[in-house]
Design a protein around this nucleic acid. Structure first.
Lengths: 232, 232
DNA sequence: ATAGTTATTTGCGCCAGCGCAAAGACAAAT
DNA sequence: ATTTGTCTTTGCGCTGGCGCAAATAACTAT
């Protein structure tokens, strides 16, 4: 499948790129397909490529020596990821990128991207925008993890996911998410047991419906209220 | 007190700046002094200035609606902070910057910095380096908070602080830190009670000595062992 | 269908860490 | 020296959330 320069305009970082540059990027990149459950890169690998996801979903996660892991972010189509290597010369990926479904991504050499940025301020700004957004999200999540109780953190995570990758299903029946209890646990720093209990409770209250690796948010507003937690 | 262009070279972001640019920056900035406990800016303020701390210590912190707060980072002399505004046009500071002692900082207009970056790739790279480092630190701390127990998180925080702002006292008697129990609690997402108990325990074991707003690390290696937590 | 695999639910016991309260230690000011 | 304010310590009781275990549900492959 051929990727068109025009499609690259959907990528935030390339928002202000002239067509010539888009072609240049395409010429200096290769397409990589990874099947569900596979990895684009592992934490610690040398960051030789930056990626642009063209189809599928990827989760960025970090694990500690004991093997426990946290989900840092979920990437959807036309988002850039693994771009830290384009900045530092000899960087290593600080996280692993695992596919949640069959995925295709464009791999751009980090050195090439770096050299492009030397003469193209719009590119640097694009990347910095990505970074500042991400920093702000991480700071908020960090604060949540430190100060909020599980219930609120999970509500927040669902709200965030709904905004980032949620699909409004046609039957206007709420927002559909495809994550296992384990996934959500790793996003919120808790356990799949607690998530299961919490979702069951919320399903009883009619806030959402659940299935195997599926969460359908029926009343987002109620989640917001839980996240804000005005009691106590 | 006059700040010399030469001194600005200590700032990581300006590592590769030619002297002319350093003078230009000085000319387009003003010096602000804030006394202990005061604020350079508050979370939510319009990010009109980026700061370079010339003396003192500043903590960046974020608070939630209920007023609970977390410490994101401690800034020491010649570090840049509040620089997110130079990227987004209409950004707001995502955190507050409170001084831990009497401080002086150089305030550079965000718009001015932004315009400089248009024609100076080294500046963008300097800032991106700052951001990627920070992102990596936040990701690690996030993972810690999500997967590690309090004991390990506190050990890690002390190690990190020792590296960033620790002063090796002359009497070779370990590394000196100036933080209250409350400060450490806010850095690690726990409570001052728990920190107090933990430090008392470690003092009993001879790993460190404590005082009022003072922690003196005697055996850093033992902290590393605790942080790694090989038991269980 | 049937068997095998993977995800989810739920009961149950447990404990790390919270947070109140009250006392003690330290520093600065008068 | 005394007061005042801030920081720290520690006892005590409590509970949110963990995590095992075992049952159940849902999907996949033969």
């Amino acid at each position: 499948m051929q990727i068109l320069a025009n499609e690259l305009k959907q990528v935030n970082v390339f928002q202000n790129a002239p067509d010539d540059d888009l072609h240049l990027i395409l010429q200096n990149s290769i397409s990589r397909s990874i099947e569900e459950g596979g990895y684009f890169f592992f934490q610690g690998d040398s960051a030789r490529y930056s990626y642009i996801l063209t189809s599928g979903q990827v989760k960025l996660m970090q694990s500690n020596p004991k093997g426990q892991q946290v989900n840092l972010r979920t990437i959807t189509a036309w988002e850039m990821f693994g771009a830290l290597g384009a900045v530092h010369a000899d960087a290593n990926y600080p996280a692993s990128a695992q596919t949640l479904e069959n995925c295709t991504a464009l791999a751009v050499g980090s050195e090439f991207l770096h050299s492009m940025m030397e003469t193209r301020p719009y590119l640097s700004f694009g990347l910095m925008n990505l970074m500042t957004d991400y920093i702000q999200e991480m700071q908020s999540r960090y604060r949540e993890l430190a100060t909020e109780r599980v219930e609120q953190r999970v509500a927040n995570a669902l709200i965030r996911l709904a905004g980032q990758s949620g699909i409004r299903s046609k039957k206007k029946a709420g927002i559909e998410l495809s994550f296992s209890r384990q996934d959500v646990a790793e996003m919120t720093g808790t356990t799949l047991y607690t998530i299961s209990r919490l979702l069951s409770e919320w399903e009883r209250q009619g806030i959402l419906k659940t299935g195997r690796e599926r969460i359908q948010i029926l009343r987002p507003h109620d989640l917001v209220k839980i996240a804000e937690d005005l009691k106590k």
